[in-house]
Computed example of a mutant assay.
Amino acid sequence: MPSPSESRRQDPAGRHEGGFWPVPDVLAHLAGRWCVERTVRDLAGGTEGRFEGGTVFRALDGGGLLHEESGTFTWQGVARPAERTLRFLPGPRPGTADVRFADGRPFHDLDLASGRYVADHPCAADLYRGEFTVRDADHWRTVWRVGGPAKDLVLTTDYVRED
């Protein structure tokens, strides 16, 4: 039974203050198929692109998940196929993940125990800062702000669990 303070902080749908959905086991939560929509805004140039597709998080031998994303990216009216692969490995604490690129290079940590997490990834002279928020069992979002001498972007991705 939740304490009185916990009852005040959590709404009937299970969300905590701020509208975040706590996730005690990030790998179990992400497993499966998700529909993906992403906008990419170039703040310097004022242009915007869009990605539409899907992501599958499937079990890896030895633990963790393979994240395979594919779809269509449209930029300045030109649509082209796009895909990426990441590895979500068990993190240093229960319920966390160590996110890596397909080739094994480190990307960022992930801990959604509170339903929200901020991660940084330096890439050459640019800095990627990602905010991960879980709205409920079937919806989550990432917002990456990319800044530096080469880039000035905001990438917003919405994930909706497939049936």
Results as ranks from 00 to 15, higher is better:
Val78Thr: 09
Asp109Met: 14
Glu69Lys: 03
Val56Cys: 02
Val36Glu: 11
Gly148Pro: 03
Arg58Ala: 05
Trp34Glu: 11
His67Asn: 03
Val134Trp: 02
Val99Gly: 00
Glu83Tyr: 06
Phe88Tyr: 15
Arg50Gln: 06
Ala79Phe: 08
Arg84Thr: 03
Gly71Phe: 01
Ala150Gln: 14
Thr39Glu: 12
Thr85Ala: 06
Arg135Asp: 06
Trp34Met: 15
Pro81Glu: 05
Val40Glu: 08
Glu131Tyr: 01
Thr85Gly: 00
Leu66Ala: 02
Gly115His: 06
Ala97Pro: 03
Ser5Asp: 15
Val134Phe: 07
Gly91Trp: 10
Ala125Phe: 08
Arg87Gly: 01
Arg141Tyr: 01
Val154Cys: 02
Gly115Phe: 07
Glu68Cys: 08
Pro94Thr: 04
Asp126Leu: 13
Tyr128Ile: 14
Thr55Pro: 01
Ser7Phe: 08
Ser7Pro: 00
Gly19Cys: 10
Leu89Arg: 10
Pro4Arg: 12
Gly32Arg: 13
Ala97Lys: 08
Asp138Ser: 13
Leu27Gly: 01
Thr142Cys: 06
Gly71His: 05
Pro22Glu: 12
Arg8Lys: 10
Asp109Cys: 10
Arg145Asp: 03
Leu86Ile: 05
Ala137Ile: 08
Leu89Lys: 04
Thr72Met: 10
Asp109Thr: 11
Glu131Phe: 01
Arg100Asp: 01
Pro106Met: 06
Ala44Gly: 11
Asp120Ser: 09
Ala28Asn: 11
Val40Thr: 08
Arg41Thr: 07
Gly54Gln: 07
Gly95Gln: 09
Ala150Phe: 04
Trp144Val: 08
Pro24Trp: 12
Asp98Arg: 14
Val134His: 02
Gly104Thr: 08
Gly53Met: 11
Ala113Ile: 06
Pro122Asn: 06
Ser70Cys: 08
Asp126Ser: 05
Val23Lys: 09
Leu112Ala: 04
Arg80Ser: 03
Pro4Lys: 09
Asp126Phe: 08
His29Cys: 11
Leu65Phe: 00
Val160Met: 05
Trp34His: 07
Ala82Ser: 12
Asp126Ile: 11
Gly54His: 04
Phe101Lys: 07
Gly148Thr: 04
Gln10Asn: 07
Gly54Pro: 01
Trp144Thr: 02
Ser7Gly: 00
His29Asp: 09
Pro106Tyr: 03
Thr39Cys: 09
Gly32His: 11
His67Thr: 00
Gly71Gln: 04
Tyr117Pro: 05
Arg9Trp: 13
Tyr128Leu: 15
Val118Leu: 13
Pro81Trp: 07
Asp126Pro: 07
Glu52Val: 15
Ala44Pro: 00
Pro92Ser: 12
Asp42Cys: 06
Gly32Phe: 06
Thr96Ile: 13
Ala28Met: 13
Ala137Trp: 07
